[in-house]
Amino acid sequence: MNIAVCIKQVPNTEAQVILNDGILAFSDPKKIINPYDEFAIEAALRAKEQAFPDASVTAITLGPESATEALRTALAMGCDQAIHITHEPHPGWLAPLTVGQAIGAALRQVDLVFCGRQGIDHDDFTVPYVIANAHQMSCINVVKEITYKPEEKKLWVVRESDGGQKEYFECPMPAVLGISIGLNKPRYPSLPGIMKAKKKAIESLNLTDLVSDSNCTWIQPSTYELPKAKEACKMIKGDIAEQASELARILKEDLHIV
């Protein structure tokens, strides 16, 4: 029984996007695990603890050297092994189709795959479906609840669609599940877990060995534009009468509303 959890390292959610001579950068170099993926890791670990005690949980990521930090965190939380798919540096990023194919190829025998529902950097919502397609597995994204039926090799899955209505599925295994926030509470890694994770070997695979060059699609926008900064509120000072007359003046003269 093999469980896999796909994770991605993304920019810090609080980092500001900066555009320098047409190149996109972030104010904070610290990167984090894609927040949805933390819930996916917890879901994978709980699947093992609650339903498949003999299973092995593999964390897998595709990304630059720094992405190993995300894998170390997954190992510290309790994953059994980790795979890092590396690639040559590139100014753009890989198309989700390529990412899904690479992960699909790296996961040889797998019964359950957990992903975050989307990456918060590019919001593609795509990788889970591509992985499922590679292995001819069932796939349900935006999962809110899971019940395991290990004897029947089935899952009961509740999916929430936009607007909040719930959809109930009986899902055969193997399956890929895209996990949404709120499914669980990701655990805090213990210090012995962190220490052990530091020493664990991470299997390294090369992207070019998994996906042929002709199938590798890189995305690189021609140009970027950042959203305009919101204008700050203007506070009108003075006593009530002064405030009222100033407000009337702004509405009339500056904004031409009245």
Binding site: E14, D28, K30, G193
Partner: peptide
């Protein structure tokens, strides 16, 4: 790894953002 949820959030903010508020450094 046991603590009140809000304490966990503060620690995660410290880890990821270097301050308990979780605001960009």
């Amino acid at each position: 790894g046991k603590m009140p949820e809000e304490a966990m959030l503060a620690l995660r903010n410290l880890e990821q953002k270097g301050n308990p508020w979780g605001i960009s450094e």
